[in-house]
């Protein structure tokens, strides 16, 4: 099944005098979408609402026709998965396989079913050989992959990543980029909160810029990253390649080094 999220005039505030989200209208469907913006722009609050961890002050979120407010957090978890920023916030089992099987069993899979899903998920992140290892004996990059597999194994239709590339080196980023694209090609709806613009340019179909609790820009990365002045106002940067091409006076917006090199070679 495909995941589709419809967000209608969503407002949220913790206290009466300070509104965090000031009316968000978005439809999120079959695309990988990056939510970018300065800290404090409301990105984290927004994804917490999508997970049902917070309730909107007004407006609603509809998932495949059902209002999220009529579902419990546990019910939402079956359909919408979220990988938290720090893998240490969730890991508690003594072996990788048990850790990855925990989520699937919580959402009602049998032990056998959970095991099959867990092994598939571990394979997708390239950790199937380490299934018996204690997660605490792994490095941070590998623990991150375990935390991703733990969510994938629950087989949700929507997967949200919170800053997946933080503290990752080149190999780690490459691996996470591949996972994002693989999930997208499987027809999952992939969302991420992220500060790494090069990563967005490289791996995402759509970028939504949050600023001061509202949506400032929305569209494919070419369109969004071509608006240098607006990005600057939201305290964001263009991807490095885009910046270079703008400095060189190109009209077109290039997102990756490969795109630009190909273009130049074709001339």
């Amino acid at each position: 099944m495909m995941g589709r999220l419809e967000i209608r005039d969503l407002h949220f505030s913790y206290t009466e005098n300070e509104e965090i989200l000031k009316g968000i209208d978005l439809v999120l469907d079959q695309q990988s979408t990056a939510i970018i913006g300065q800290n404090g722009a409301g990105k984290t609050t927004f994804v917490k609402l999508l997970k049902g961890l917070l309730q909107p002050t007004s407006g609603k979120i509809v998932y495949n026709g059902t209002d999220l407010s009529s579902m419990t957090v546990a019910q939402i978890a079956k359909h919408i998965g979220m990988v938290f920023q720090n893998p240490n916030d969730q890991i508690f089992k003594n072996s990788v396989i048990d850790e990855v099987m925990f989520g699937p069993m919580q959402v009602g899979m049998s032990k056998e079913e959970a095991k099959v899903h867990a092994m598939d998920a571990l394979e997708m992140v390239g950790m199937e050989k380490k299934c018996k290892v204690n997660p605490y004996d792994l490095g941070l990059s590998e623990r991150k992959l375990i935390s991703i597999a733990a969510i994938l194994a629950m087989d949700p239709e929507v997967i949200i990543f919170d800053e997946p590339t933080i503290a990752q080196d080149y190999a780690g980023k490459k691996c996470i980029g591949e996972i994002v694209e693989h999930l997208r090609n499987q027809g999952k709806l992939v969302l991420t909160i992220i500060h790494d613009m090069d990563f967005v340019a490289e791996h995402f179909d759509r970028a939504v810029v949050f600023a001061k609790g509202g949506v400032l820009l929305d569209g494919n990365p070419e369109k969004v990253f071509s608006r240098a002045e607006i990005l600057e106002k939201a305290f964001l940067e263009q991807p490095n390649v885009t910046r270079l091409c703008h400095a060189l006076g190109y009209e077109e917006t290039f997102l990756t080094t490969d795109d630009f090199v190909e273009y130049k070679k074709g001339q």
């Binding site: 997970k51 957090v73 546990a74 978890a77 079956k78 998965g81 938290f84 916030d89 969510i151 629950m154």
Partner: peptide, 11 residues
Amino acid sequence: TITDAQRSRGM
């Protein structure tokens, strides 16, 4: 945060 992370896994 940890409570949120585990609830997000259906707990």
